[in-house]
Nucleic acid binder design. Sequence first.
DNA 1: TTTGGCACTCGTGCCCTTCAAGTGCCAATT
DNA 2: AATTGGCACTTGAAGGGCACGAGTGCCAAA
Lengths: 342, 342
Amino acid sequence: MSDQQRSQARRLQVLRAVVEDYVHSREPVGSKALVERHGLGVSAATIRNDMAALEDDGLVTAPHTSAGRVPTEKGYRYFVDRIEEVKPLSSAERRAIRSLLEGSDDLDEVLSRTARVLSHLTHQVAVIQVPRIEKARVRHVELVTLGARQLMLVLISSAGAVRQRVLPVDLELVDAEVALVKEAVLGLVGGEPVAAIGRLLAGLPGRLVPSLHPLAAAVTDALVDLAEAERVDRMLWAGTANLARFSDDFRGNITPVLETLEEQVVMLRLLSELEQDAHGVAVSIGSENPHATLTQASVVASGYGPGNHAMIGVVGPTRMDYPGSIAAVRAIARYLSRILSA
Amino acid sequence: MSDQQRSQARRLQVLRAVVEDYVHSREPVGSKALVERHGLGVSAATIRNDMAALEDDGLVTAPHTSAGRVPTEKGYRYFVDRIEEVKPLSSAERRAIRSLLEGSDDLDEVLSRTARVLSHLTHQVAVIQVPRIEKARVRHVELVTLGARQLMLVLISSAGAVRQRVLPVDLELVDAEVALVKEAVLGLVGGEPVAAIGRLLAGLPGRLVPSLHPLAAAVTDALVDLAEAERVDRMLWAGTANLARFSDDFRGNITPVLETLEEQVVMLRLLSELEQDAHGVAVSIGSENPHATLTQASVVASGYGPGNHAMIGVVGPTRMDYPGSIAAVRAIARYLSRILSA
DNA sequence: TTTGGCACTCGTGCCCTTCAAGTGCCAATT
DNA sequence: AATTGGCACTTGAAGGGCACGAGTGCCAAA
């Protein structure tokens, strides 16, 4: 290995050390502290030269002349792109995940527990996109007569999600008729993609005997509406208290981040636009995020479930333990996929 | 009116003014500013005497010798107990509520929208208890065959809540048998309180023909479990960004409040233990809250829905616009009750 | 009971100094 | 060419001193 190669390698090592120390201490890290904490076999002066070079490359920056260095966004990006091994979860952590997630079978319940586990694991806010039913197929449609003039429509998808809607109908309900309509609807959409419901049901009322027209029309309208409403993504999140704990990292103001979470729309679009790497994990750092409210934040996310279409991840300050977060997100996403496919 | 009565009345007026100004400005309010902003027909010196008296009564306090006065918790309590008229909502606000809440018929959806509306109205965090299904009666039970060995159980309560559970059954499922079991179960629990499900179904399997025993047992177990699981209260919340905005009022640390919200348990117990006044509104101020994490916070809440068993309210700093919050919570609770009973 | 006057208190903002951490650069060394 | 020790230099943070202003408490008069 030539001298040049060696010093190149050390520079990367120095960048790593700067990132790690800064993430740990939240304070600009100086050359002296660096040689002490990490067993680099060189003097502080050498490190100073390296840090100056890193600064020229825009990977670190000094808040002021007589302070240590802080990683820039570019520095974090460089660091993240060169993470070789993520910290594997401890067996205690794996056990905790398993025990917390097993024994619930309602989709929303599983997702919200998962979000809580992930936020505890990473000490960040965990966000999780609720899988869109429209990508799934129709497993079952059920009509339940609730009373004289009320009908409940239940749509069950192949992903196990259940959506229901109560519809008032201005008709005398006859069980036999309701059953007929249900069979007709189910025959058309059963097993088909939820997204195709509108198209498939278009001509249904006309194909039934006239006396069933009003009922069939009401039901198809409601069902199309229900499938349509699912176009709107939903998400859950957990661990916002972690944001408050690290509010310094957001210039003391976590309001925009909380607003973005509650807004949902922005966050959902961001999640769906992330590009995952070879390991299925995506990292978006600071101003790489497409929305101004998240320029102080980073997102680590991964797809999960059938087709990896839905995303799960964490949102935290740019000064964040990336290797740890990536490991946790990856592990949880895989675990969740396994649970959902069972 | 005697002199003494007159000066008593003015003291209350002064307390009101102190509370209002402090809530508005977040700064200790002095005697001079008080006579200027409010048209009290007396001099600053008189107000000083009154404020000294209020301080003797423990209703206000001075952060230091040369500062104005700040209401104490006792002062807020005294103020709240003597609120004569709450600010009525503007017609624009009423219109906003109506347009935002109509057109959704899923219970969770209505509740989460309501929480969002309330948080916008009050600029506080809104919390809402999901009504417990067990207090309601069984409206319908449905069994849906999902596949060869999977059954979905759906429980619909008189409150319109739908809970479902997928149960794997180690049996060859025959539609006619499933229908028989469903009829038997429905016959026993239909119209009965959800809480009574366990008792009512106790001896069911034995009363059916032997071939149905395994199926009936699986279904009753699952149904009892489903009803039992609903014993655990849930809550939703919205508007945590408002907390961050007023973080100064929580000594700059909103972490405990966020944790309490996410914990749910503590918050739910607090909500259920609140005692409502004649108008159906309960106010809990600072250390009146039974939990240490909420000593910087106040809660304004009201019951809603059938029997007013479920609570809706806001959580904010003790320095809070009580009349406004009370008005908003009251209006929203009434409106929500009306929607749910429709 | 109310009022004007006045001395007193105390927090805030400002300036100044000191101190320590950390840098950049240079000449000497490997 | 890379590394090293030495050294002058910069700069924010911490602390002390000082003037200022807002607001109080008390008193004597109305």
